[in-house]
């Protein structure tokens, strides 16, 4: 269970990305965070594993406050949070295998990892993760030689290497076309339902949200403006959607169908 209490983040330039955000994520939830660009979704996700330092508030996870954790403990905490990114964030000039092995860095000693020496168990685990994501043929290719969908699968394999309990997914399908979006979210759903991982994911499209989310949080200007479970999402009204997305809601909606028509 992750309990977020009164979380605020103010950047050095004065931008208030999060304003007193509090919510709870039960284990096994598929929580989708929605909101406009700049509403604080990315900051929220990055505060959870402290890629971004929160200004105020607590993040209680299994009884420890991540926000107050020491650096040494933070490494151990981070490896329980697998993270995948909108732009995949792979090292493009490294091979798929090296990128996947990087997910294991939180477990191995610094000296050995610098010389790319990983225990046999870790190497087998990488092979299994790569196979699970259907990338075995690509193992020794450079990441940049892969298509977008394949790169995101490498990103998931890397997260799997952390043996995570939580997956943080920052707009994982925003750079992919709709068919691939379903493939990638399908993998996340599998991790959520079969492996019992908690998923916290930011998404833009209402149909994807309705299809995959078990719970939803709506952010607007750094505040939570909407909260609901699966049933509430299915019956979410235009007005509620508009509350989250503001005046631009209709345009976003129209833009979405137009974009999908284009891509289709």
């Amino acid at each position: 269970m992750i309990e977020i209490k009164n979380l605020s983040k103010t950047y050095a330039d004065g931008t208030q990305a999060l304003k007193d955000v509090s919510f709870t994520v039960e284990d096994g939830q598929f929580l989708v965070v929605i909101g406009l660009s700049g509403s604080g979704k990315s900051t929220l996700l990055r505060c959870i594993n402290r890629l971004v330092e929160p200004t105020e508030g607590q993040i209680i996870w299994n009884g420890t406050d991540i926000a107050a954790a020491e650096i040494a403990d933070l490494r151990k905490i981070r490896r329980s949070f697998g993270m995948i990114f909108q732009h995949f964030n792979l090292v493009k000039r490294s091979t798929v295998l090296t990128n996947v092995m990087a997910g294991r860095l939180g477990y191995v000693s610094t000296a050995k990892s610098i010389f790319h020496r990983f225990p046999k168990g870790d190497r087998d685990m990488a092979a299994a993760a790569i196979e699970r994501l259907g990338l075995t043929d690509q193992t020794n290719k450079l990441a940049r030689e892969l298509s977008g969908g394949q790169q995101q699968r490498v990103g998931i394999a890397r997260a799997l290497m952390q043996e995570p309990q939580v997956i943080l997914a920052d707009e994982p399908v925003a750079s992919l076309d709709p068919v691939l979006a379903h493939t990638i979210l399908g993998y996340l759903e599998q991790l959520n339902q079969e492996d019992g991982m908690t998923v916290i994911c930011s998404l833009h499209y209402l149909d994807l949200i309705q299809r995959y989310a078990s719970h939803v949080i709506g952010l607007r200007d750094g505040r939570i403006v909407w909260q609901g479970d699966s049933a509430a999402i299915q019956t979410m009204t235009d007005k509620e959607f508009k509350d989250i997305y503001g005046e631009e809601a209709e345009r976003v909606s129209a833009g979405r169908s137009a974009t999908e028509a284009d891509r289709g």
Binding site: K92, A102, R104, L105, L168
Partner: peptide, 20 residues
């Protein structure tokens, strides 16, 4: 991006430099 991703796995600074 990749530097952020490697840090997120729990890698320390030296590992982040080597891998990211």
């Amino acid at each position: 991006g990749p530097i952020e991703a490697v840090r997120a796995t729990g890698a320390n600074t030296l590992q982040t430099i080597m891998y990211g």
